[in-house]
Nucleic acid binder design. Structure first.
Lengths: 144, 144
DNA sequence: CTTGCTGCAAATCATTTGCAAAAGG
DNA sequence: CCTTTTGCAAATGATTTGCAGCAAG
């Protein structure tokens, strides 16, 4: 699976005239294999052992390109920094207010809700983000 | 209406041991009378003519208190800065991707959608934020 | 009076930018 | 080779903090 994925990123980069570098593959790899919705700094820290000379600036620059290629989406969970998700399907997210972890919410059908909103606003809607907040299972059990 | 509102903020501040200052009333007043969901800087700029010596730091410190008193909620519309809303009811927001304005979406019944999510996650949910993106009526007509 | 508040300036923190050296194609 | 990219360091921009003088109760 790792291979298929990297081949895909490689050709997408080349198609748009971007060069394929080990740093770019590594950063995409972190995003594609993580369910943690890492921030730029988390990606940087994860890659430190493997690429000790890589800089945070490279992480930010690469994310910029990945956004352009629609390979990542940006999350604004209400923190001071952004998080990134290689799953670009438009799904809701939930953040634990105790430990800060962010999870995907899959199998949610939001079409009806979106339609309701679309029919009541004069805006021409093109997208949306749904964020839920609460306590994750692990923090629930720790509490009591 | 201005009066009723200020009396309310005044007593809420006093109740919690905060002092009532003209700056605090002015900042809350801006938030309570604006539909624009201003950022700290927008509040600061709006008040410049009336309080030329007020500092941005005071705006931020006051917002902190207003959050504590549940008199404002924080919005994360995907920009570099936060926006604030004196309407603390939990309603969806929509941002125009052309001009950047942020509007409320009222009369939306999200209970069914929230229930659907609550029943499918192991999280104990306590809140949520729904952000929609698109083009506002004014920008639609400007385009064509 | 006494404590909390303001306004200034300096500090932080995430993110961006400029640029010389290094790597991709 | 020629161009883009990297990695460093410096710049930026939003927000926070420290502190001395000032105002609220």
């Amino acid at each position: 699976m790792g291979l298929t994925m990297e081949v895909c990123v490689t050709s997408l980069l080349r198609d748009k005239g971007f060069k394929v570098t080990p740093q770019r593959l590594a950063i995409y790899n972190v995003l594609a294999t993580s369910k943690a919705h890492p921030s730029a700094e988390m990606i940087y820290n994860l890659l430190q052992p493997v690429y000790p000379t890589m800089s945070l600036a490279t992480v930010y620059k690469t994310i910029e390109i990945l956004k352009e290629l629609d390979l990542v989406q940006v999350l604004n969970v209400g923190e001071d920094s952004f998080r990134y998700d290689a799953d670009t399907s438009n799904h809701p997210h939930v953040r634990c207010l105790v430990c800060g972890r962010v999870d995907d919410l899959h199998h949610i059908d939001s079409r009806e809700f979106i339609n309701q909103v679309a029919s009541q606003t004069a805006y021409e809607l093109t997208g949306q983000q749904f964020y839920f907040y609460g306590t994750c299972p692990s923090c629930q059990s720790k509490k009591q």
